[in-house]
Write a protein that binds this DNA or RNA. Structure first.
Lengths: 220, 220
DNA sequence: AATATTGGAAAGTGATACTCTCCAAAAGTC
DNA sequence: GACTTTTGGAGAGTATCACTTTCCAATATT
């Protein structure tokens, strides 16, 4: 198919596809003459993957590029895929105090988790704990353990649910579950928070949002 | 204190403080004459809160502004604080298919959660489920229920841990827990995923990151 | 031959989050 | 009282991001 058809099938404007091609997010099509290139199903899939990561996962194009590089890395063993995906997905080199780092290390040891000593998530977590301390709030051990326990349940189920058939598909699923599972989990957590808050403080008298009668308008 | 001292105590450049003042993120100081204003502890606290939300919570200044407006809304009853904070924290008006919306509604009903019918989290969640469908992956009911169960545990603990003494402090804690608890939970989930992956696929031979021998360099 | 489409490159756009420069008024110093 | 420094405030400038627009000459299609 030509670029116009690719645009139709993926619902991404031609100009944006060209931009992604230039930025190396999308592999070039098969050149047919000097001013023509043919695209295939892989391009449609790749475009949909990009849009999902950007729109629902909230990733920047720079991160998407990192992630796609890992997806395409044929040499990756399955036991390295997840670490590679995480490395591509999250920021690195965050500052954190030694105290918070030690707290994170202790938690990991206590849980018996097998993670690289250099995993950026350690620093990310320590950094978040520091940020709370800086504003005068301490995340106590009980709550931290509750987080860890919930995280374990979710992660075990997610890893168990990963398809094991085709390598390419497994890697893609790994990336998608990590990137889109986050928003899903956080949205559910907020819904549960609202429910818990309603139980603690009594029922709200009315919806907080200011839509008129008739409920929520549909968009698009 | 003058602006220079405020800058020192909050570790935010004077130019940035002036910018926040202009943008209405920080209330003006008490004017003393035409070219002088006095700032207090509340300004230091407010600045630290802003930086925590931006740096650790990953919020845009526009969202921070929404959140602060809720923090300052004295008329808010406690049972409305959480909904207001969520509304300020997340995007609204996301498109979602009726099918995913129904799935979300069913889950909420099944869990017996008390949430507004207009909560933006419903649409956000449905939208994420749609995004996964669009790339050919279905989040099955088992996994969704695992997410919901983990979310419930976390949310209950979080709401129970909210301080109940001072109203201002409670509202601030609500915002902080919601905004910074997210990154914490997601980081722990990724660490747990790595561990689960290591168990499923066998131990990695070596850290995936390319630091030389001697382990991780410390930064800053 | 006339029209349309393509790939590719360059420049333009709008949003975000600062950062810099300038200013006159005021405060501190000698 | 002259001189230096600091202040609040405003405006313009900067860098990054994610496109979008405009242009082009080389094809394809009619």
């Amino acid at each position: 198919m030509w670029i116009a058809e690719l645009s139709r099938q993926s619902d991404v404007p031609v100009a944006t596809i060209k931009y992604y091609l230039r930025e190396g997010l999308l592999p070039a099509g098969e050149a047919v003459g000097a001013t023509r290139a043919r695209y295939g199903e892989t391009h449609v899939r790749r475009l949909r993957l990009i849009r999902a990561l950007v729109e629902a996962g909230g990733l920047s194009l720079a991160r998407v590029r990192n992630v796609l590089a890992e997806v395409d890395e044929e040499s990756l063993e399955m036991h390295d895929v997840l670490g590679a995906a995480h490395g591509a997905l999250i920021p690195t080199d965050l500052p954190a105090t030694d105290e918070s780092r030690r707290r994170v290390d202790d938690l990991i040891a206590e849980r018996g988790w097998e993670v690289h000593s250099g995993s950026p998530d350690r620093a990310l977590l320590a950094n978040a704990l520091d940020a709370l301390e800086k504003v005068g709030y301490h995340l106590d051990d009980d709550l931290l353990k509750t987080y860890a326990s919930a995280a374990t349940q979710v992660a075990d189920a997610e890893v168990a649910a990963l398809p094991a058939d085709d390598r390419q598909r497994t890697v893609e699923a790994t990336v998608l579950v990590t990137a889109l599972g986050g928003p899903v989990l956080l949205a559910l957590r907020r819904l549960a928070q609202q429910s818990a808050s309603a139980r603690r403080y009594g029922m709200p008298r009315r919806p907080a949002c200011d839509v008129g009668e008739g409920g929520v308008r549909s968009t698009g």
